[in-house]
Structure formats: structure tokens, C-alpha cells
Amino acid sequence: MQVQPVDPAGMLGRAVDALAVEVARQWRAELSARGLGHLDPSAVRWATTSRPVGVPPEEIVGGDRLPPSPVRVTRLRLSGRVEDMARMLANSPARQVAIIGSPGSGKSTLAMLLTLGLLARRQPGDPLPVLVTVSSWDPGREHLDTWLVRRLVELYPALGARGGYGPDAAMWLVDRGLVVPVLDGLDEMAGPAQAPAITALTAAVGRDRPLVVTCRADEYQRAVAQAGSPLARAAVVEIEPVSAADAAAYLPEGQLDGAARWRPVLAHLAAEPDGGLAHVFRTPLMVYLARTAYRAPGSNPAELLTFTEPGNVELHLEDKTIRIWVPHRAFTAT
């Protein structure tokens, strides 16, 4: 039987409140740094995956919420936006979800938005969502909770300081279930560790502890297959492609003379919503690169219409964005 640490003078409550403020500040700043501060969260859509990676519906929502016999529900058809996912988690008995998607589909962005959405819905006493990258966890060497306590102290040093909230604040938060781990990037773990991570996560969170995990879709499907069982009671949702209309709304937003400079591209997207350029903009990453590459006054987004192959558009945007991020530096031999 695990002995819960004592919380002297109510320091735990103050630690939770302070951490909530810090987590919200951190991820709002990160979204802004990525140029996504004005991103409308409603543009990020998700739906239940059709991949064979999830538990039966009754494990996710509870048998009493399904239609009575003889109707048999084989797959939940959940879908929505960021705010709908936060609501789904709040209403789900297990409060567990795995977010999967293709490379560049916006899994990390959705994890940030979901973390902020859960913080906004949080009531006093509710667990606190904390987003951490999971790539450094070795499930064969360290229990999830041990690793999580260590990462919390590394990310938020006040939780480990002898002053303030006491040196055991992070342990209190985890042991008392006051942290919702939002684990980003399961696919970034070493390949051999991914399947054991599914098994270790299931053992750690059980049937009723909240959890959010993100992973590339193919890697997640492979890890679940190798593990031999799905992740706990998690609903598995897949990020849907960005629509041409959503891309068109986001590309010129907040830019000087943006509407005029982007007009030819927006007209093209409206005329060919399933065309090659719209296909490039199916991932938030490419939309972000295009917006970054042509955000400066005087730049000409219509250049994108001169390419005939989607792959060449992607290479152009990557190259142009790198040139913006890493200014050219001349070196003189001496």
C-alpha cells in the first residue's frame, strides 16, 4: 500500500494554482512563437480512426451509454474540433485519448490547444493538464510516474525547490492524481521502446486515470500490434486534413495587405479545392510554412501557382522558410 505524502499548510493547492498559470503561459507563448497565436482552434478537426487500434466502444464510454440489445455498436463515430475533444474527455469515464495523424498533421499543435482548452474548463480540484514530450521516457527502466515527477521538476523548478511548495510538490501532484499527462510524440521514442510504452502506459493509468498521448498514425498502429493490446481505455482519434477553405482563411490573416497579396492563391483554392495546391495545404505544417514564407510586405504568394507538382511546392516552402529562419552569413578566409 502506497503512503501518500502529507501536504503541510495546504501548499499543494497553491502549487496546483501556480502550475496552472505557468502551463497556460508556456503554451500560449509557444503557439505565438510558432505563428499560431491567431489560429482559430475550430479549424483543427478530428474523428475516430478507422484503424484497428482501439478498445471496444463500451470500454470507452461505458456500456450504459450504448444502445440496448440487439443493436451492436462496433465503432464509435466521434468527431469535432478542439473544444469538442475537451468536452469528450470531461464526459468520458476513462478520460483517455490517443491523438494520431500523418507527419505534419498538427498533433503537437492539437496537444497544445487541448491543454489550453482543458485548463480553461478546469474547475477547482480538477486535475491539471501538463504537456510534456515523451521521447526521453524509457518504459523498460522507469515507471511512468517516476519519470513524470522528474520531468515536472525539470520543467518547473519551483516544484522541486526546498522553499515555496516544498521539495515533494511534484510527487504530491502525481501521487494524488492532480496531473493529466499530455504526452506528446510517442513516435519520437526509440522504435523498440514504442510497443513496451503502450503496455507500460496501460499498466500505469489503468481504467480510470486520465491520459492524452500523441503519435504518428502508422507508428501507433505498429506499436499497438506489437504490444498485442490497445492503450488502456483510450479513444483513438485521427486528425483530419485541413480543408481548402480553412487554409484560405488562415493564410492571409493578420498580414499587411495580406488579402490583396494572397488573392490569386485564395481564388485558386476556391476554384480547385481538391487540386494540387489544396493537397499541399492539407497539413497545418504546410499552411504554416506558406504563411511564414510570405508574411513580409512585398512578398508574392502567387509564386506558388507556378509549380505544377505538389512536391515541388513543399520543397520551395521548406527552402524559403529556412532562408527566413537562418539568415545567410558570409565567411571570409583569413
Rank of each mutant, 00 (worst) to 15 (best):
A245F: 04
A245P: 01
A245H: 03
A247P: 01
A248Q: 05
A248M: 06
A249S: 14
Y250H: 15
L251A: 12
L251R: 11
P252I: 07
E253P: 03
Q255W: 08
L256T: 06
L256K: 05
D257I: 08
A259I: 06
A260L: 08
A260V: 09
A260Q: 13
A260I: 02
R261V: 05
R261Y: 09
R261K: 14
R263W: 03
P264F: 03
P264Y: 02
L266W: 11
L266N: 10
A267Y: 09
A267W: 06
L269Y: 01
A270N: 03
A271D: 13
A271W: 11
A271E: 15
A271N: 11
E272N: 15
E272V: 12
E272F: 15
D274F: 06
G275H: 00
G275T: 00
G276R: 09
L277K: 07
L277N: 10
L277W: 06
V280D: 01
F281Y: 02
P284E: 11
P284Q: 12
L285N: 07
Y288F: 14
L289V: 03
A290R: 05
A290L: 11
T292K: 13
A293Y: 04
Y294A: 04
A296S: 05
P297I: 01
G298F: 05
S299F: 08
N300K: 14
N300A: 15
P301E: 01
A302T: 08
A302R: 14
L304A: 02
L304Q: 02
L305C: 09
L305Y: 09
L305A: 11
T306H: 11
T308D: 12
T308G: 15
T308A: 15
T308H: 13
E309K: 10
E309H: 10
P310S: 04
P310Q: 02
P310V: 02
G311Y: 07
G311A: 14
N312V: 15
V313G: 04
E314H: 02
E314K: 10
E314V: 15
L317N: 02
K320S: 14
K320F: 04
T321W: 04
T321M: 10
I322V: 12
I322W: 09
I322P: 00
I322N: 05
I324N: 01
I324M: 07
W325T: 11
V326P: 00
V326D: 00
H328C: 06
H328M: 07
R329M: 09
R329N: 03
R329S: 06
A330V: 13
A330R: 14
F331Y: 07
F331A: 08
F331I: 06
T332R: 12
T332D: 04
T332Y: 08
